[in-house]
């Protein structure tokens, strides 16, 4: 991942990000895609192998259990034979027990080796999964980068052919300011219209001329109260 990001940055700074000179070129892209496919293939193989080994290990465990069960069953038989004074028979049974135990031991050893291979393979699967995620992320960065370059190039040529040239930031700012001023004018206009409709503008004019009906009413009430007191 780090190498891809560095490659992109180096190419960008070098100014090779012209269209047709894709930053991580098509070749690099194909190599990444091939690596991705290889990693996917390896993962698939490792998983199949792992499944087979795990099935084998389970089968071995079953066989070991059978041998152990047989041994313990024969042990009971041998005790019974001894108790019955059948020394010869007991010896024969003991020989069987040895056979079962030996086979159980051999199978356990095989299974332990198998378990080691399973653990190793599990690690390989995890490694492959991590690598796959890495490749996918890298490829996504490369592809998005190319898409952005192609897209902006397309926007530029399109705008250039439609409107003589891409408008500069200063022109855009001017248009923004024009619109904002128009909006402000509209707001002021609608506010004054509202005042006219409610008569608020007339009240303001009267107040400015020193004619305030509200103030007059207060004064009238005060005068009446004062008159009452005087009486």
């Amino acid at each position: 991942m780090r190498t891809v990001l560095k490659k992109i940055l180096t190419a960008m700074r070098g100014g090779v990000n012209e269209l047709g000179e894709a930053v991580v070129d098509g070749q690099g892209n194909r190599i990444l895609e091939q690596e991705l496919r290889d990693a996917e293939q390896e993962l698939k193989q490792a998983k199949q192998e792992l499944a087979a080994l795990m099935a084998e290990s389970a089968s071995l465990a079953r066989q070991i259990r059978v041998e152990q069960d047989s041994a313990s069953k024969r042990e009971q038989d041998a005790s019974k034979a001894l108790a019955a004074g059948q020394e010869e028979l007991a010896r024969e049974v003991a020989e069987r027990i040895v056979g079962h135990e030996r086979r159980a031991g051999e199978l356990t050893q095989t299974r332990e080796l198998l378990q080691q291979r399973i653990n190793g393979l599990k690690e390989r699967v995890q490694r492959a999964e991590r690598q796959l995620a890495d490749y996918r992320r890298e490829l996504q960065v490369v592809k998005t980068n190319e898409r952005v370059l192609r897209t902006t190039a397309q926007i530029d040529t399109n705008i250039n052919s439609n409107q003589s040239s891409l408008s500069t930031a200063k022109e855009t700012l001017e248009r923004i300011r024009d619109r904002q001023a128009r909006e402000e004018d509209r707001q002021t206009a609608s506010a004054s219209l509202e005042k006219e409709l409610t008569g608020a503008d007339l009240d303001e004019k009267l107040k400015a001329a020193g004619i305030d009906s509200e103030q007059d009413a207060v004064n009238d009430v005060l005068a009446r109260l004062k008159g009452n007191q005087a009486q």
């Binding site: 898409r147 192609r150 897209t151 397309q154 926007i155 040529t157 399109n158």
Partner: peptide
């Protein structure tokens, strides 16, 4: 936006 890539303005 005319061109190979699907771009909208």
């Amino acid at each position: 936006v005319a061109g190979d890539e699907p771009v909208l303005q």
